[in-house]
Design a protein around this nucleic acid. Sequence first.
DNA 1: GTTTAATAAGACTAATTTAGTCCTATTTCA
DNA 2: TGAAATAGGACTAAATTAGTCTTATTAAAC
Lengths: 135, 135
Amino acid sequence: MLKLSKKTEYALMAVKFIAKKTDGNSVTAKEISDGYNIPYDLLSKVLQQLTKKKVIKSFQGIKGGYSLSKDPNSVTLIDIIRAVEPNYQITECIKDGSTEKDCTHFNCCMIRDPLAKVQKEIDKLFRSLTIHQIL
Amino acid sequence: MLKLSKKTEYALMAVKFIAKKTDGNSVTAKEISDGYNIPYDLLSKVLQQLTKKKVIKSFQGIKGGYSLSKDPNSVTLIDIIRAVEPNYQITECIKDGSTEKDCTHFNCCMIRDPLAKVQKEIDKLFRSLTIHQIL
DNA sequence: GTTTAATAAGACTAATTTAGTCCTATTTCA
DNA sequence: TGAAATAGGACTAAATTAGTCTTATTAAAC
């Protein structure tokens, strides 16, 4: 597969929407949901996850909403993906703390190290792309 | 997600297994399946897909099996992934030939081009890694 | 020629993951 | 206190992946 889930798509769209709003006001989930035709509930959760990871900040209450919490040049693709994709490692066994036991194949390590290298390269790529660059 | 499926894992393990066999004889699916604890039927399909894409070559009949069809230096990770992952694009809408209609969100194009760029970078990475390098 | 052991391939089922929905609580401004 | 926003847990539906089963085809060996 290697696909990014809808959550990442929605996160990118949301961040772009929020970034475009330059009048100082925050943006509500409903505005984004309506504007981009994204399911409201799902989008809400994505926004909450982005908030937890400090990619955006939220304001509660009736005048609430979301705004960027950082300079678009200092937020990278990896921040967004990590906020939203529960396990984005290209394979299970290269997670931190995983041991031989977690591997179904006792010979798994034959490809484990190589794949870890590939993962590092992907990380590097995602870390090099700021949302200012790509959106 | 961004995970590679088991098929890619099995493909890499199989290619490594075949590459290690240097006595000129071909390797059977059963040998790989037994050696690495991979479900035989699933592995068979992976091997068939690799054969179709000329990553390996097959010999039918009772003395049959598989062997590499190319120099390990000239086969890259992208060859293996493309042989085995039906759609490995990081998102739907950047497939060749997909139009606005294929996109659920009429504003999808807001992230389409950026994601296409990311895809290109990933492709570049996978194309630069030969199986000789990583296995 | 028949047997045997291999690849080739389609159809199907089970398991897992993703996508989406529903409901309730909490916050804060008017 | 009411209205409209975020926060978040539980649940269902849909899609994808993983694995199984079955049959056909191929080619060496007897």
